[in-house]
Design a binder for these strands. Sequence first.
DNA 1: TTGGCCTCTTTCCATCGTCAAGATTATCGG
DNA 2: CCGATAATCTTGACGATGGAAAGAGGCCAA
Lengths: 206, 206
Amino acid sequence: MNRPKTRGYHHGDLREALVASGRKLLEEKGVRGFTLRECARRAEVSHAAPAHHFASMDDLLAELAMRGFKELSASMTTESERAGGDGTAQLVGLGVGYMAFAAANPVLFQLMFSREANRLEVAEGASEIRRLQAAAVDAALQSADTQVSGEVRQRMRDFAWATMHGFITLVLEGEIGGRDSSRGLKARGLAALAAMAETVVRSGGR
Amino acid sequence: MNRPKTRGYHHGDLREALVASGRKLLEEKGVRGFTLRECARRAEVSHAAPAHHFASMDDLLAELAMRGFKELSASMTTESERAGGDGTAQLVGLGVGYMAFAAANPVLFQLMFSREANRLEVAEGASEIRRLQAAAVDAALQSADTQVSGEVRQRMRDFAWATMHGFITLVLEGEIGGRDSSRGLKARGLAALAAMAETVVRSGGR
DNA sequence: TTGGCCTCTTTCCATCGTCAAGATTATCGG
DNA sequence: CCGATAATCTTGACGATGGAAAGAGGCCAA
């Protein structure tokens, strides 16, 4: 696929190689064990080579976080469409995609939502998530014929995001379902999402 | 209170001094900017002195996390009692205490719930939180005369913790209420907690 | 007093991120 | 085709870090 036909002085696509090795390294060693030199080592270049593609280590981490947000969006969209059904089902699907990505990339997920990666580009990635989320909440409200004020609508967006974010975060930390099988955890996650969705669509009735 | 009457060779209470300077440093520089040598510098001892009190840097961080959990428990208990009222109000109060601690110690809070600090002692601190949380959910269910199965009860515990944890986490990251005043954020946090509590106490009625 | 033990310092090492300078290769106008 | 210019990568160095080793200073009980 790629062409390493000549293993010459130039790597060919070092930037992508660093992103790839960096991502693996991140999941293996955690944020604090992450090392620029080890990234370079795995890409088989000298320890100073990355500097020509990323001004600093934080720049590489920011790039990883940014790509993470794109993947997260994709995962949410995919699961939401796969869920089909009404707006409420799609809101739950969005949460499933959210949790699936986080479970598959726990360290990256933590990095994405940590102050360590507070670059502007990363924040833009996060706002895409917010957009998806808000639209799904609005659609769920509409499909349930629930009329709410703008303020309540915003609260329901906060609430829905908080529930799915908090659940998967606590699962990744082992605070929820520490010894449960992955199957049991999925069921509990779905239950939490269902309770969240139900609260959202009922938010007008009181 | 402490006795530095002689600034001699011995510090007197270096362990506590390291914990204190470490905690400040943590909030100032973040988890990745945290440095054992800087801790020692602030405690006015040599850079190798901490080794006699903490085997490694991770040990110091674990100690900070452990103490953080104790403070978190205290904050939750205080706010819960201050809330008074029925079980539901106390559950909301617990969440207020949770959020208040996290807002006052954002970096420490993040450390406590990160895989970086996955020591046994720290996990025990977290289980105390779980205990408080579970009891409050059960009390809220009881005070609302809501009868639920053990499974649903467990789900409501997960759900309640996830909501309050996710909300404050997203607030600390600026994902929720990025430009709002602290006052507006408090209102939104209370609204999220209220929605959570309402869902919990209604969990039997369907 | 004296010997042992705890505390802290000094010194050293491997590793890290980053910078500067040089070597190598690609690109492109002539 | 060729040579200059830019892009890419290497080498070497610097200061800072976490940790280990060894020694100096102070405390306390016998």
